[in-house]
């Protein structure tokens, strides 16, 4: 890939700022667009409308309609266009309004983007980024509340990251943009407004393929990603305060590649593990994690690996039903206490 189109690095910003997850994603895109002219954004309503969830707000004004490109409602078309542009060395960031709509473009993602490196013998690469939020809990009902993270993470040729806080949102999106392979960045609707400290350094990227111990503990490991991590951290604080129970929370950050080493080290320490996800557990992310743990940690386990996810129903509209289906903090707490054999 030609390096000639890479612009001179801007004067490095420094320091740490508190910002929302949404602002951190925008900062990552702005920095990478300043750094590399090959980077451009396209998707529905990303420009004039400032983004369906305002992640790209202001970017069209700053970079113009060529680099922040509004698309018709044509997911298969513009995801595929991203694949083609990436094959010729561009660095497209394709925004999909929600993960649910990425299903319309599934063929381009799974059958095309993911295959390019291998199928053509490494002759051509596809440095494409697809950014899209998942997330349930706002009564968006069956067709708009799904988490298919596991489907994509089960696809060789794709990389999948799912940041749970603003710092990782910036770091992982930047890593995805610089990566030479197609990377799906799974964002999350409820976290968009969450605030956190973000290092402004434009050269700081978070490595893809590394989990983080988001909270240290000794009694039980909770493995989670995306919004489930946020929930798990709250439960950990509550159980520490109310029951003197110490939860360690491993935030996966990257689903493919998966950092089994960090998970296994935590389970070796605590001997008990609960895997949580927002998606359906059957054949899901937690299914994969559980399989890895039983293999890597067979002798360490004091209890069966437990999993918690969305009830296995298309999500209903009524608030009461939706709440009953979701892996809420109450349900994570109860599942954690079950694994600890503190409740039946």
């Amino acid at each position: 890939m030609s390096g000639s189109s890479v612009a001179a690095a801007p004067a490095p910003a420094s320091g740490v700022e508190t910002m929302t997850y949404r602002e951190a994603l925008r900062l990552a895109m702005r920095q990478e667009m300043e750094r590399d002219e090959r980077v451009f954004v396209m998707g529905e309503e990303v420009g004039l409308f400032d983004g369906s969830y305002k992640v790209t707000a202001g970017l069209m004004d700053e970079f113009g309609p060529d680099r922040v490109r509004d698309t018709p409602i044509s997911e298969e078309g513009f995801v595929g266009a991203g694949v083609g542009a990436a094959m010729l060395g561009e660095r497209p960031i394709v925004e999909i309004m929600t993960l649910n709509f990425l299903l319309v473009a599934m063929d381009q993602v799974v059958n095309h983007a993911a295959k390019i490196g291998a199928m053509f013998g490494g002759e051509v690469r596809c440095p494409l980024v697809i950014r899209t939020p998942n997330g349930a809990g706002n009564q968006l009902t069956a067709q708009h509340s799904q988490s298919f993270d596991g489907w994509f993470a089960g696809t060789p040729g794709l990389k999948v990251v799912a940041p749970a806080n603003p710092a990782d949102a910036k770091g992982l999106l930047k890593a995805a943009i610089r990566d030479d392979d197609p990377v799906l960045v799974i964002e999350n609707l409820p976290i968009y407004k969450e605030k956190g400290e973000v290092d402004l350094d434009p050269d700081l990227v978070a490595p893809i393929g590394r989990a983080a111990v988001a909270r240290e503990g000794s009694d039980l490991t909770v493995v989670a990603h995306s919004f489930a991590t946020v929930r798990a951290l709250k439960v950990a604080e509550k159980l520490a305060a109310e029951k003197g129970v110490s939860l360690e929370v491993v935030d996966l950050r990257s689903l493919r590649p998966l950092d089994v080493e960090t998970i296994a080290a935590s389970v070796a320490k605590t001997s008990r593990v609960l895997c949580v996800e927002e998606g359906w557990p059957s054949y899901g992310v937690t299914a994969e994690i559980a399989a890895r743990i039983q293999h890597a940690c067979f002798d360490d386990l004091d209890a069966p690996v437990e999993r918690l996810g969305m009830a296995e129903v298309p999500l209903p509209y009524a608030k009461e039903l939706e709440l009953a289906a979701m892996p809420t903090e109450d349900r994570i707490e109860r599942a954690a206490l079950q694994v600890l054999e503190l409740v039946r």
Binding site: A311, E312, A324, A325
Partner: peptide, 13 residues
């Protein structure tokens, strides 16, 4: 051995 989400909410539901 089904996971918590399924056990409680699908089979009991």
């Amino acid at each position: 051995g089904s996971p918590a989400g399924e056990e409680e909410l699908v089979f009991a539901g």
